[in-house]
Structures are given as C-alpha cells and as structure tokens.
C-alpha cells in the first residue's frame, strides 16, 4: 500500500502535496456547511453523505437541496442538477489522456478543483499524479465533510465570518491563472464570465456558468500554440 501510494505521488514534490492538502481542507469545510444546510432543510442525516458519494459534484448537490428544500419535486431537482453538471462534458475531453489508465475512476473523480489543479500541470506524468492524488483526497474530504456537517447540524457556526466563502473562488482563480496568462485564452474566458454575470439574475443557481460557453465562438485554433506554463505553487 505504501509502495503504491509513493508510486502514485512520485512526480509530485512536498509543495504540491501541501497545496493539495490546502485544497482538500477548503473543500472539506464547504462539505461541512453542505451537510449542515441540507440537514437544516429537513433531510435525514445520511442524505448529504449519500449524495456526496453518488454525485460528487458540490454545485449540483447544493442545488438539489435547495430545490427540494423549497418544495420542488425530485424530478425538477435532478434536471436542474444535470443542467449544472453539463460543464463536466468538456472536462472529460480535456483530461481524456490524463485518466487513460483508469478511465472509470478518473471520470468519477472529475471535480472542478481537481480538473483545475490537473490542467495547471504541463508534464503528463505530473498531471496524472496531481489528478489522482487531489481527486482521491477530495473524495475523502468532501464525503467526510458532508457527514460531519450533517451530524453537527445547526451547531456549525457561520463560516462567512472567517471569509471562507471567498476562499473557494480564490482556489479556482489561483489554479486557472497559468492558463489565463495566455492572452487569447484569457480574452475568451473574460468575455465568457461577463456573459455568465449577465445571466445570474435570470438563471437558476449554477446554470449561469453555462452561459459563458458562447464566448468560445471567439476561439481560433492556432497551430503550434504554446502550452500553458507550469504553475508555480511553491
């Protein structure tokens, strides 16, 4: 077991593992608030943990809780969750080579933060190790976090007071910054984000993100375009 673990983490150094731990702790705290909120909406104690294991997608799980908690039907909640998770379709194509050895486990672990952390690595071996180590860690922290939050329930204090709600977007931003240093990618992404912001007041929670996609019409294939530089996370 120890040998297999070290062969998996092989290309990653201590600072990579520290960053992965930080991402995991941040996601674990979001998991605790997910568990607490879901139980607070009247769901049974095992529901957050069950959803975290079978879905493993934070935004769609919050949405499911929100729709059913507000009196909506389970069918509506599932459809809304599937719409939000449609963003995972391009993730799979972008990371197909990375998960080639274990496509089923790899597909299961394609969480936003894992995708962003893996795409920030240029070398294929490092990218694969980053993907699986971060993915397995997040699976553990997210499912345990939602269980702990469900058990603690309403005793969980307001995490916004510690600014933790700002940490989640900050993690994503830090992870995609290497890709954003490419001016063409950055311009398309900025136009997409403006489109998504315009959609916020009209689209259900999480669906606004998909409204960023028409910005890809501005994208042009450039033969021999440079790969994004390696993220410096020391």
């Amino acid at each position: 077991m120890r040998a297999r673990w070290s062969s998996l983490t092989g290309p990653l150094d201590t600072s990579d593992l520290r960053d992965i731990l930080l991402i995991n702790v941040a996601v674990g705290i979001v998991g605790i608030s997910y568990g607490a909120i879901t139980v607070g909406e009247g769901f049974a104690w095992w529901v957050p943990n069950f959803m975290s294991v079978v879905v493993l997608g934070g935004a769609s799980q919050f949405l499911f809780t929100g729709v059913v908690g507000a009196g909506g039907s389970v069918v509506a909640a599932v459809l809304a969750g599937l719409l939000v998770n449609a963003r995972h379709l391009p993730f799979g194509f972008a990371l197909a080579d990375t998960v080639r050895g274990r496509p089923l486990l790899g597909s299961y672990l394609m969480i936003d933060e894992v995708v962003a952390f893996a795409l920030a690595q240029r070398d294929p071996a490092r990218r694969r190790a980053a993907f699986f180590v971060c993915g397995i860690g997040l699976w553990l922290f997210w499912s345990l976090g939602s269980l702990i939050g469900a058990v603690l329930g309403q005793t969980v204090t307001d995490t916004d007071a510690f600014g933790l709600d700002a940490a989640f977007p900050a993690v994503l931003l830090a992870l995609i910054m290497p890709a954003l240093r490419d001016a063409a990618t950055r311009n398309v992404a900025l136009v997409g984000s403006v489109l998504a912001l315009f959609a916020v007041p009209y689209a259900p929670s999480g669906v606004a993100v998909l409204c960023a996609l028409p910005a890809l019409l501005l994208w042009r294939h450039r033969p021999g375009a440079p790969e994004p530089e390696e993220v410096d996370v020391s």
Binding site: P90, L173, A212
Partner: peptide, 14 residues
C-alpha cells in the same frame, strides 16, 4: 481545454 478554463473562470466569478 479552453472550454474548461472558460467554465472554471465563470464559476469563480459568479
């Protein structure tokens, strides 16, 4: 890959 970056930035900003 670009689509993934576009979606992740939009997720971050929203």
């Amino acid at each position: 890959s670009t689509a993934a970056t576009v979606l992740l930035l939009a997720l971050c900003v929203t």
